Measured scan of single mutants.
Amino acid sequence: MTGIVKWFNADKGFGFITPDDGSKDVFVHFSAIQNDGYKSLDEGQKVSFTIESGAKGPAAGNVTSL
């Protein structure tokens, strides 16, 4: 699925993605970002991701920028 990064705190390594389908915002951890180098996201960035079952509920996985 796709969405827009609502916010991401690079110091803490997590944030939230707002899915394009209008569903509830999804937690994203830096370890789910699939790019080389520094793993961070920018507010407003368009991303593709999967929904994984995290310890505290749904979380984004396999996050790639579009």
Rank of each mutant, 00 (worst) to 15 (best):
H29S: 05
F27R: 03
N9P: 02
K39Q: 10
F16N: 02
E52C: 12
Q34A: 12
A60G: 04
Y38F: 14
S53N: 14
N9L: 07
G37T: 10
S23M: 07
D21T: 07
D42L: 15
V28Y: 04
M1S: 08
I33E: 02
Q34P: 04
K12V: 08
L41A: 02
G3S: 00
S31G: 06
A32N: 08
A32S: 11
K56T: 10
I4N: 06
D36W: 11
Q34M: 13
V26E: 00
E52Y: 15
T18D: 03
F8V: 04
D42V: 15
G13N: 03
K24T: 11
T50I: 12
L66M: 12
N9C: 12
F16P: 00
D36K: 12
A32Y: 04
I17W: 01
A32V: 10
L41C: 03
P19W: 04
F27A: 02
A59K: 14
S31P: 03
W7Y: 08
T2E: 05
K56H: 12
A55M: 12
V5W: 02
A10C: 14
G44H: 06
V26A: 03
N35Y: 12
F8K: 01
A60F: 02
T64F: 10
N9Q: 06
G37K: 10
D20N: 08
S65P: 15
D42G: 13
G61P: 02
G57E: 04
A59H: 14
L41W: 04
V5Q: 00
K12I: 09
A55L: 13
A10L: 10
T2A: 05
D11E: 14
G15K: 00
N9R: 12
D11K: 15
K6Y: 04
T18A: 11
F14T: 03
I51M: 11
F14E: 03
K6C: 10
A32E: 06
Q45A: 11
Q34W: 08
S53A: 14
T2N: 06
I33A: 03
H29L: 05
I51P: 04
V28W: 03
P58N: 10
G3P: 00
S53C: 14
G44K: 05
I4H: 09
G13T: 02
E52K: 11
G44P: 01
T2D: 03
G61R: 15
G57F: 07
E52S: 11
I17E: 00
A55P: 14
G44I: 02
E43P: 15
G3W: 01
A59Q: 15
I33C: 04
A59G: 06
S53W: 15
F14Q: 03
D25P: 07
D42H: 15
Q34S: 12
S53I: 14
M1G: 07
F30I: 09
D36I: 11
S40L: 11
I4L: 08
G3Y: 01
Q45F: 05
S48M: 13
D20L: 09
I51Y: 10
V5T: 03
G37I: 09
I33L: 09
N9G: 04
T18K: 14
K46M: 10
N35K: 13
I17H: 00
G44F: 05
K6M: 04
Q34K: 13
A32M: 06
F8T: 02
K12S: 07
F16S: 03
M1R: 11
A59N: 10
K12F: 09
F8S: 01
G3E: 00
Q45I: 08
E52G: 08
K46P: 10
Q34C: 13
S48V: 11
A10V: 12
F49E: 00
I33Y: 04
T64K: 14
W7Q: 03
D20H: 08
M1A: 08
K39Y: 08
A10I: 12
D42S: 15
T2I: 09
I33F: 07
P58V: 13
V5E: 00
L41T: 02
I4C: 13
P19K: 03
V5N: 01
S65E: 10
G3C: 01
D11Q: 15
L66N: 08
S65K: 15
Q34V: 14
